[in-house]
Amino acid sequence: DHWEIRVGDITIHLKDVDEEIIRWVEEALRNGDDLEEIKRWVEEVLR
C-alpha cells in the first residue's frame, strides 16, 4: 500500500502503513502539530 497525506502545501508519502497511523497523522496535521515531530513519530512506529 502507498499513502499520500495532503494538508495544505504539505504532502507526506507513506508506504505499508496501518490506517490507524494515517488517521493519527491526519489528525495531528489538522491540529497544527509540528511536522518534524510527526515524521519522527511515524518513523518510530514503522521501525
Rank of each mutant, 00 (worst) to 15 (best):
L35P: 10
I12A: 02
W24N: 02
L35M: 08
D18R: 11
L29F: 08
L35C: 00
E27P: 00
E36H: 07
R30M: 09
E19C: 05
K39Q: 09
T11F: 11
H2C: 11
I10P: 00
E44A: 12
V7Y: 08
E26M: 15
G8L: 12
W24L: 06
G8Y: 06
R6W: 04
D34K: 08
E20A: 11
L46Q: 03
D1K: 13
V45T: 07
D34A: 10
D16C: 04
L46K: 02
E4S: 08
K15G: 06
E37K: 13
G32F: 11
R40M: 03
V42S: 00
H13V: 12
V17I: 07
E20K: 11
E27Y: 15
E36C: 03
W41N: 02
I38C: 01
K39A: 06
R6Q: 04
H13C: 09
L14I: 07
D1M: 15
R6Y: 02
W24Y: 09
V45C: 04
E26K: 15
R47H: 10
A28P: 00
A28H: 10
A28E: 01
R6E: 04
I12T: 02
L46N: 01
I22S: 04
R47D: 04
W24I: 05
L46H: 01
L14V: 10
D33Q: 13
R47F: 03
R30T: 05
G32L: 09
R40V: 02
E20W: 15
E44M: 15
I5H: 02
W24V: 04
K39Y: 13
L46V: 04
E36P: 02
I22L: 12
D16S: 12
E27V: 12
D34S: 10
W3F: 07
I22F: 13
T11K: 05
E44T: 06
E44I: 11
V17D: 03
I21S: 02
L14D: 01
D1H: 13
G32P: 10
I10H: 08
E44P: 00
W41P: 00
D33W: 15
E26D: 04
L14R: 04
I38F: 13
E43L: 15
L14C: 04
E44W: 13
I5K: 01
I38V: 07
I12E: 01
L14N: 01
D34G: 07
L29G: 00
R40F: 03
I22C: 01
N31F: 07
D1Q: 13
V45R: 14
L35V: 11
E26F: 15
D9C: 01
I5Y: 04
L29W: 08
E36Y: 09
H2S: 11
H13E: 09
R30I: 06
E20Y: 15
I10N: 04
L14H: 02
E19F: 10
V42I: 12
L29V: 06
L35H: 05
L29S: 01
H2E: 05
W41M: 08
R47T: 11
D1C: 15
I21M: 08
H2V: 12
R23K: 09
V45Q: 15
L35F: 09
D18W: 15
R23S: 04
D1L: 15
R23A: 08
R40D: 02
V7P: 01
L29K: 01
W3V: 05
I22D: 00
V42G: 00
A28L: 07
K39E: 03
V45E: 09
D34Y: 14
E36F: 06
E36D: 09
V17M: 12
I10V: 09
L35G: 04
E26A: 15
L46W: 06
W41E: 01
V45S: 06
E36V: 05
V45M: 14
D1T: 14
D18Y: 14
L46E: 01
W3N: 03
V45Y: 15
R23D: 01
R47A: 11
L46D: 00
I21Y: 03
D9R: 05
E43R: 13
D18S: 12
K39F: 14
D34P: 11
D34W: 14
K15F: 10
W41D: 00
A28D: 00
E4G: 06
I21C: 04
E37F: 13
D9W: 10
R23G: 02
V17A: 08
G32N: 06
A28F: 09
I12N: 01
N31H: 10
E19N: 11
E4R: 08
T11V: 07
I38L: 07
L29Q: 01
D9Q: 10
W3Q: 02
E43T: 11
D1A: 14
H2K: 09
L46T: 03
N31A: 08
E19M: 14
G32K: 05
E44C: 14
D33M: 14
I12D: 01
R40I: 04
I22G: 03
E4A: 10
E27M: 15
H2N: 09
W24K: 08
K39H: 07
E36G: 06
D33R: 15
E4V: 15
H13P: 05
W41A: 04
V17P: 06
V7G: 04
L35E: 05
L14G: 05
G32E: 05
R6A: 02
E37L: 11
N31G: 05
R47L: 07
W3Y: 07
R40L: 05
N31Q: 08
E27R: 15
E26Q: 15
D18A: 13
V25Q: 00
H2T: 12
E43H: 13
I22P: 01
R6K: 08
I38P: 00
I12W: 14
D9M: 13
V7A: 04
G32D: 04
E20V: 13
I12Q: 02
R6I: 07
E19D: 11
I5P: 00
D34C: 14
R40S: 06
N31S: 08
D1N: 15
D16G: 13
D34R: 11
V17H: 07
E19G: 07
T11S: 09
L14E: 01
E27A: 14
E37I: 08
I22W: 14
I38W: 10
R6M: 06
R6C: 02
I12G: 02
R30P: 00
L46A: 03
D9K: 06
E19P: 14
V42E: 00
L14F: 11
K39D: 02
E4Q: 12
I38S: 00
W41I: 07
E26L: 15
L29M: 08
R6S: 03
L14T: 02
V25P: 00
W41G: 01
E19V: 12
A28Q: 07
K15P: 04
I22T: 05
N31E: 03
D9T: 05
E27N: 14
E36T: 08
E36A: 07
R47V: 09
I5T: 01
E36S: 06
H13K: 10
